[in-house]
Design a protein around this nucleic acid. Structure first.
Lengths: 213, 213
DNA sequence: AAAAAAATACCCATAACACGGTATTTTTCA
DNA sequence: TGAAAAATACCGTGTTATGGGTATTTTTTT
């Protein structure tokens, strides 16, 4: 049985790095390099339904169209193409942005070649490949933060209802108190939480996982 | 050098299961069983600053005070105690609820003994232990949903700014358009997204991961 | 080039929100 | 039991948000 090689495209602005990766992949069985691109715009020019890789290895930090925008473009236009990030960035912001977009793998540029090959294998097999530090960022972003400021039961209830499309009058009805009392709760929370508007309350409640989406 | 054993408490309503786990742990070096409890309330009666385990093995499904409530109580009252979930539940809802609370490990009850020991080691060493299926639930919950409704660049920009405490007038200034135009964007979004208030816009934008918290 | 569509902008009125202050009722504590 | 604190409620006013409608300008399509 003849198996088609996995087609790979490489998007990175450093030609030397691209060459090194191409050389590395030539040592792995079952992969072919379809094309290289120096940034997102270059990739957009080269990719087509007839010239479509299975896996794209994508850097984040590129002049012109960067990795994040490129990944978003790919998700919108070629959702079946799997993206593995090859990046020097380990920080949560970049990692989470890419995971959120739906990339299938994330590797640092200083990963070992066998880790790289393992990632290719997993992604080619329909799985995701995220190293420990990526998982840790995910978990940390997911944990409820325990807010320093304590709110009593009524305040909490008000805050939850403030995070809905109910008007304050409707909230008052639901809480069986007067609209003035609701004003009071609002003022209390504004003062305690250093917030100045309803939107601010909503953002606070969601950020602190007090309401579910 | 004499190393103190890691003190473990076991919270599960099935006595036979507890006995099995106790027996299993007695084969591992470096652990001692501090106490057993049949549910959350039983645990609360037994735990004290003087009788405090390093790790609690906690079931989810228990009559009386269940695992989720227990984990929340523990986080509030003994945040330094590490919780490993031992559960038969693999579903996203339970997994994500526990991860959100901050448990340090999650194992299914049919895990292999060496996986169990590995989890204990990692958690005792200050790490977390989450098997593949937990990570997958995390990733899936994290990915941006691609909303069916397409918004153009201006609408998106407006929506992002609507998810801040800026007034519409301030948003208009920032977008270099008239306040009336901003009214127009708002009306467009209200109609497209079937939303009737600013709060609704904020909730939509966050739910669809269009703005960062 | 003209027509259509999209984007931007205007009007007026009402509802909702925020603010700064005071008052009353209920609960807690000494 | 009485005082203090907390919870609930009131007032009036200014600002902001919403709604329903029309108009103008710019861009796209034919």
């Amino acid at each position: 049985m003849l198996t088609e090689p996995i087609k790979i495209a490489l998007v990175d602005d450093h030609r030397l790095f691209r060459s090194g990766i191409v050389s590395l992949i030539s040592n792995f069985k079952g992969y072919s390099i379809l094309f290289e691109a120096s940034d997102g715009e270059d990739l957009i020019r080269k990719i087509s339904p007839k010239n479509k890789p299975d896996i794209i290895l994508l850097d984040i930090n590129m002049p012109g169209m960067d990795g994040i925008s490129t990944a978003q473009w790919l998700r919108n236009n070629y959702p079946e193409v799997c993206v593995i990030v090859l990046s020097m960035f380990e920080d949560a912001e970049k990692v989470l942005a890419m995971v959120r977009i739906g990339v299938k793998g994330y590797l640092l540029k200083d990963a070992e070649p066998q880790e790289f090959e393992n990632a290719l294998k997993r992604v080619a097999g329909g799985e995701v490949y995220y190293p420990e530090f990526v998982t840790r960022h995910l978990i940390n972003s997911f944990n409820e933060s325990t807010p320093d400021i304590k709110l009593n039961g009524r305040e909490l209830e008000f805050l939850r209802l403030a995070g809905t499309e109910l008007t304050y009058k409707e909230i008052a009805d639901q809480m069986c108190v007067s609209a003035r009392t609701v004003d009071g709760y609002r003022d209390q929370l504004f003062e305690k939480l250093q917030i100045k508007s309803r939107v601010g309350l909503v953002l606070y409640a969601i950020k602190n996982k007090m309401i579910e989406l």
